[in-house]
Each structure stands twice: as structure tokens, then as C-alpha cells.
């Protein structure tokens, strides 16, 4: 008979099932997220078009969206648009690959070795403080007008975010895990691959993401001064002959391509965070 009062709390179970299935918040569902992200660009496009049709700004100051589209069609008919996009993307990818690899290597060295930290960190910190444009004349003089100076500048741009995040992350790897690894006989490269590297992979990837953004910034700097192809060249050339429609086209293209490459690394980051964090 004492069983009956104990049996009573069976209700929480039914209450649990009776509770309406919770819908995921709109901010975490795919469709609304894509739509939500597109809202602001669409609104900007609308305001842009409206301000021209209402005569708020002159088309000599701000060409209409249709004119920008026409400029794109015109350039691609002459085969220049794909060429410029392709050459710029190629420079970014090659420079990014070189800079990011060197950044991981230097970051690992400085993050793991105290003597490397003492010897290298101040110099690298000083080089990092040099603005991107300051390198351009020097690189042009040293490396000429070919691909090397541009790729080198992009590599410099990609190097520092990776170097900084990797060295800092390695400094802050959970010392208890490192000690546990050591206690089980791991050391040197085995300790690095078993404990330290996996522990910093999420930071490395966010460093890569930053580096990719910076690679695009440095690319335009490289192409603005001394190039005969590429989106940065398109900008400087159009600035020279007053083609505002092409300038806006180049800016939009840089935004779109930059966002796409960033999104690709973002997907990789998500996967890696799931696997390693």
C-alpha cells in the first residue's frame, strides 16, 4: 500500500511526452539562414536602384546595377573577366598555400621552443607591423613585374595570422594533457602529433580563415601597383579612366569571391571542430 504514493510520480513521464516537440529556432535552420543572410544585400540593391530611379544621385557618380551588370557582360565577352578572376584567385591560392605552410612551421617552432621564441618572436613581430603597401616597391624592384612579387606579398599576408594563432595556441595547450602524454612516455615529435597538434587544430583553422581574408587584402595591394591582369589591376585601371561601373564590379567580385573561399574554409572548420574539439 505504500506503493501507491510512490507510483504517483509516473506523471512526469507523460508530461514529458505531452510537451510539444520543440521547433529549432529559426536562426539554426538552413533555409531561413540563407534567406536571412541575403536580405541585407537585396535591400542594398533595392536602395541603390531606387536612389538612381528617383534621381537622388547621378549615374556619373553611381552607375545603376544594370550598368554594372553590363560592364561585367562586356568584360566577359572580351574574355577579360574570367581571366582577371582566375589570375587573382590563382595568386591568392598559391600565395596562401606558401604563406600558411610557413606560418604553421614558424608558429610551431616559436610555440614549442622557448629559445626559438626568444630568438624569432621579436623580429617576426616587427615584420608583422610593416603595412602591406610598404613591401610593394621593394618586391617590384627585387622580383620584377612577374608573378613572384604578387605571390610573395600574398604569402606575407597569409603568413602572419597563421603564425600568430599557431604559436599562441601551442603556448596554451592544456599542460595537464601534455604532462599526461609525457607520463605515458611520449616526447618530441610523437608528443606533438599525439597531443599538441590535435589540441591546436581548431585554432590553426581559424588562423587559416583569417589568413585567407588577409591574402585577398594583400593581393589587391599587390595588383593595384604594378600588374597587367587581375581584379586589383581592374580597380586601378578603372580608377585611371573613370569607369566607376567597373570599379563597383571589381569590389562586388572581391566581396563575393572572398566570401566563397571563406565559406569553403568555414565548412572545413566545422568538420574539424567536430572531429578534433
Amino acid at each position: 500500500m505504500t506503493q501507491t504514493p510512490i507510483a504517483a510520480p509516473a506523471t512526469p513521464g507523460t508530461a514529458h511526452t505531452a510537451r510539444p516537440a520543440r521547433r529549432a529556432a529559426w536562426t539554426s535552420r538552413r533555409g531561413p539562414v540563407i534567406l536571412g543572410g541575403a536580405l541585407l544585400p537585396l535591400a542594398i540593391l533595392l536602395v541603390w536602384q531606387l536612389s538612381i530611379t528617383l534621381g537622388l544621385v547621378s549615374v556619373t557618380q553611381l552607375p545603376s546595377p544594370a550598368m554594372v551588370l553590363l560592364a561585367a557582360v562586356d568584360l566577359s565577352e572580351r574574355g577579360l573577366l574570367t581571366l582577371y578572376v582566375a589570375i587573382s584567385t590563382q595568386r591568392v591560392l598559391i600565395g596562401f598555400a606558401i604563406g600558411a605552410s610557413l606560418g604553421v612551421a614558424a608558429g610551431a617552432l616559436v610555440g614549442l621552443s622557448r629559445s626559438a621564441n626568444v630568438l624569432l618572436a621579436p623580429t617576426l613581430g616587427a615584420i608583422r607591423a610593416v603595412p602591406s603597401l610598404a613591401w610593394v616597391p621593394l618586391l617590384l624592384l627585387w622580383l620584377g613585374f612577374g608573378e613572384q612579387p604578387k605571390i610573395t606579398l600574398v604569402a606575407i599576408g597569409a603568413f602572419f595570422p597563421v603564425y600568430t594563432t599557431v604559436s599562441l595556441a601551442l603556448r596554451h595547450v592544456d599542460q595537464q594533457l601534455v604532462e599526461a602524454g609525457r607520463a605515458f612516455g611520449l616526447g618530441g615529435i610523437r608528443l606533438f602529433t599525439a597531443v599538441q597538434l590535435p589540441a591546436v587544430i581548431p585554432s590553426v583553422i581559424s588562423g587559416l580563415r583569417l589568413a585567407l581574408v588577409q591574402a585577398w587584402l594583400f593581393l589587391v595591394a599587390a595588383e593595384l601597383l604594378g600588374a597587367s591582369m587581375g581584379l586589383g589591376f581592374l580597380l586601378s585601371e578603372s580608377g585611371g579612366n573613370g569607369r566607376i561601373d567597373r570599379i563597383i564590379l571589381a569590389i562586388v567580385l572581391l566581396a563575393v569571391i572572398g566570401k566563397i573561399t571563406d565559406a569553403v574554409v568555414g565548412i572545413f572548420e566545422k568538420w574539424a571542430n567536430k572531429k578534433w574539439a
Binding site: Q176, L177, A180, V195, P198, A199, K275, W276, A277
Partner: peptide, 11 residues
């Protein structure tokens, strides 16, 4: 050694 914390590698 067995530590006070499990110190398992989370990945």
C-alpha cells in the same frame, strides 16, 4: 600514473 583529473584527450 593516474591523475586526479582523467586527463583524457578529448578528440
Amino acid at each position: 600514473v593516474g591523475f586526479q583529473e582523467p586527463r583524457l584527450l578529448p578528440w
